[in-house]
């Protein structure tokens, strides 16, 4: 299988602090990759650096075969990325934000495909983002990540704020999109989603890779969630970097 993303010895700074340390990973095309870790472990920083929203301080980053560690804008142009809901513009309507990211509204809606219905986006189009609840903003942020029609999409904790029905529907549509060839990278906090939806994963601790998770491990985890959770917590506590 072709690698969509390959990181080697990547370090990322946030301000003056080095937040991600010498991290290496490979993500195959057409897979759902889950990233887990404690608060402050560097997940968001890593995802933002991957998506060109932060510079990579050191290491190599290949996206679909091209080396882009030093080209932040090129990384950003290749990836769909859900903006943090607090940074969405309050004085814009949902349709305007989608049109900006997708080039025009019809293209954006076309790129969102089945997600639009799962997230009830048509009903939100004329709303001011400033009048949206946190759950609605989360749906808008996910829609924005897909509006540009990219092959790789990064979502940082996409199921936060969503009601159970929306979360369920969105998980299913995302899985279907991955099965059709999308490469999806998500930071997650819930183990069931990691084990049932993801094809591979990584647990981060203090900016390091603490545990890599293969498809087989995740399938076993889905069958025995308690042991899986216990193993993961132990890996985080012992901080044995892999």
């Amino acid at each position: 299988m072709t690698e969509a993303i390959a990181l080697d010895d990547v370090c990322v700074r946030r301000g003056t602090d080095m937040v991600v340390h010498s991290l290496s990973l490979a993500i195959d095309q057409g897979t759902w990759f889950g990233l887990m870790g404690a608060n402050g472990s560097g997940k968001t920083t890593l995802l933002r650096a991957l998506a060109g929203r932060l510079p990579i301080a050191r290491g190599t980053c290949r996206l679909l075969g091209a080396e882009l560690a030093g080209r932040r804008a090129a990384r950003a142009a290749q990836m769909g990325f859900a903006p943090p809901i607090e940074s969405l513009p309050e004085m814009m309507r949902v349709r305007e934000a989608l049109a900006l990211v997708g080039g025009d509204l019809d293209t954006a809606i076309g790129n969102i495909e089945g997600l639009g219905d799962a997230m009830a986006i048509p009903g939100l189009l004329d709303r001011w983002i400033g009048d949206c609840s946190s759950g609605m903003r989360q749906r808008v942020a996910i829609a924005l990540a897909f509006a540009g029609g990219r092959e790789i999409v990064i979502l940082d904790e996409p199921f936060n704020w969503l009601d159970p029905v929306a979360a369920f529907d969105i998980r299913h549509v995302l899985r279907a999109r991955v099965d059709k060839g999308l490469t999806l990278v998500t930071a997650l906090h819930d183990i069931p989603t990691l084990t049932t939806c993801c094809d591979a994963g990584l647990v981060m601790a203090e900016g390091h890779a603490a545990l890599t998770l293969t498809k087989d491990q995740l399938i076993k985890g889905a069958m025995d969630p308690l042991s899986f959770e216990s193993d993961m917590i132990q890996a985080l506590r012992t901080r044995t970097w892999t």
Binding site: S87, L88, P89, E90, M91, M92, A97, L100
Partner: peptide, 8 residues
């Protein structure tokens, strides 16, 4: 609008 400029 400051928020829209940041979003752009």
């Amino acid at each position: 609008d400051a928020g829209s400029m940041r979003f752009l």
